[in-house]
Amino acid sequence: MPILSYLAYPAAGRQAELKHQLNSLPECTVHAPEAGGGEVLVLVTDTPDEKAEKDLRVRLEGIEDLQCLALVFGHRETDGAAVEGEL
C-alpha cells in the first residue's frame, strides 16, 4: 500500500488546471500553496498496491499540464522494503 508524495510543477500558467486534473484522480490529494506563493503543487498519492501505483503513474505522465514530477517521500507497508529504484 504505497503512499508517495511529489512536487508537481505545472506548465507555465497552468497551475489551476493541473490542480483540477490531479484532484479528479481518486488516489490523489493535492495541496496548493497560498495565493501568490509560487508555481508548485504538492501531490500525495495513496494506492492499494504496486500495480495500482504503476497504473496511476502512467495516467499522471499523460497529463499535459504537468511539466515535471519530483518524488519526495515514499512509504510502503511491507517490512523494510524501499521504494524501487525505477520510480
Binding site: L7, V72, H75, R76, D79, A81, A82, V83
Partner: peptide, 22 residues
C-alpha cells in the same frame, strides 16, 4: 517484526538538496 520497524519510510531527496531533509 517490531511495530516501529514496520514502516519502510524513506526520504529521497530531489536534486542534490542535502540540506532539506525530512
Amino acid at each position: 517484526m517490531k511495530e516501529g520497524r514496520r514502516y519502510g519510510i524513506i526520504g529521497i531527496a530531489v536534486c542534490l538538496m542535502a540540506a532539506g531533509v525530512w
